[in-house]
């Protein structure tokens, strides 16, 4: 069905007592939500939202799968991912070493677009589903090869309990515990 233009009138104000009735309607809504509030605020950091599986959080490297193709560094829109050359043992002669290149990431620039994860031909990069980590100096945010392979510490998880926000027909969002209580 083709879309069409529809001319609409402005909503009418209610009659003679417009000032009274419209004001009352607004007040009634206020009273309604005062008596029956729909709160979904997350009491951070005692509670924290557990994000869905596909969330594009911090990016981690699985070095074993990396084939040094540098596609991730080439696609990075903000040039946050760089290639470095490191010596690794030769695949056939263990006493020798060869130079191989691996990606490292600069979280000062990363914009979490996930292009590097999507372009990686061997799925060597993956996202973790958390994002709320802050830093007190800039140097920490450049991850070297060792840091890049470990999932970062997540202090929020130690302090709080995970919750989930569900879309609810009545309440809009509804806060529910993400996991069943143990024991």
């Amino acid at each position: 069905m083709p879309p069409k233009v529809a001319v609409k009138p402005l909503p009418k104000r209610g009659g003679l007592l417009a000032g009274v009735s419209d004001n009352l309607a607004a007040l009634m809504i206020g009273i309604k939500y005062f008596l029956n509030p729909k709160r979904f605020s997350i009491y951070y950091p005692k509670e924290y939202p557990e994000l869905r599986k596909g969330y594009r959080g911090f990016i981690i490297l699985n070095k074993q799968k990396c084939i040094s193709c540098a596609a991730c560094a080439r696609i990075c829109p903000s040039a946050a991912m760089k290639m470095i050359r490191v010596p690794v043992p030769h695949p056939k002669e263990p006493e020798k070493t060869v130079m191989k290149q691996f990606p490292v990431i600069n979280y000062q620039r990363c914009i979490f677009c996930g292009y590097c994860v999507d372009i990686c031909p061997t799925e060597a990069l993956y996202h973790v589903n958390y994002h709320d980590i802050v830093y007190e100096n800039l140097a920490e945010m450049f991850w070297d090869l060792d840091t890049f392979q470990k999932e970062p510490e997540y202090p929020t998880a130690e302090e709080g309990i995970p919750v989930r926000l569900m879309i609810h027909e009545e309440y809009g969002l509804l806060k529910v515990p993400a996991r069943e209580k143990q024991g």
Binding site: L51, F112, G114, H127, L165, I167, G172, L173
Partner: peptide, 22 residues
């Protein structure tokens, strides 16, 4: 702002990012 979060949750479920979906 509160109701916008509903649609942000939707977009997040679809794309994996709150705002910058690319």
């Amino acid at each position: 702002m509160g109701d916008r979060e509903v649609f942000i949750e939707l977009a997040e479920a679809l794309t994996g990012a709150r705002l910058t979906h690319s």
